[in-house]
Amino acid sequence: MKAFKQINGLVCPLDRANVDTDAIIPKQFLKSIKRTGFGPYLFDEWRYADHGEPGMDCTRRPLRKEFILNLPRYKGAQILLARDNFGCGSSREHAPWAIEDYGFQVIIAPSFADIFFNNCYKNGILPIVLPAATVDKLFADCAANEGYRLSVDLESQKIILPSGEPLGFDIQPHRKHCLLNGLDEIGLTLQHADEIKAFESKHKAAQPWLFAQQA
């Protein structure tokens, strides 16, 4: 996995609550058996005026000009500012794949849906939860200031506002460690293979019916 340490990035505000993963990446793009190439289809139905299908050349598609990602001032944004319950619904990891492939590395919201939140960490994306009032203020500042940027530093767990004021954020130590170092979680877990085997033997002795073989 790609490591995440710090960025200074342009902020794009997506001002709606309960953004679901169907909206982040519609179903027709889930037919791909690859992990890459989803960025052009991020928020497909909100972003383009036509109906998207896998393999389309998105540079030729008609845009919904009013959609936030299509406004010139947010071109190249790396930080997505969002509202409550971002990423709800389907567990599709294609959603963080699309977000990452588009270029976002940080998502800030008052709350995230659990599965999406978890999926972000597996893909080098840092999801940050801030109090609703703080997020409100960021939305207001972002709207008022073209080119609004934030610095995010994972090591110190701080967001630095353009004024220089720092905002702290929480992250589980294990997740921070994996993200900072871009660690392969499977490799880490397999260091404990003996413990897994020991657990499995005990579990099998207690509940042998859980280990049914092909009938």
Binding site: S91, E93, N119, N123, T189, L190, I196
Partner: peptide, 23 residues
């Protein structure tokens, strides 16, 4: 029983475990 992402599908395939925190 709960849903997981594809990275976790791979993790379960390879290790029979999930890295998780209690809800």
């Amino acid at each position: 029983a709960h849903g997981i992402g594809t990275s976790e599908v791979e993790h379960v395939l390879a290790t029979q475990t999930l890295v998780a925190k209690r809800s």
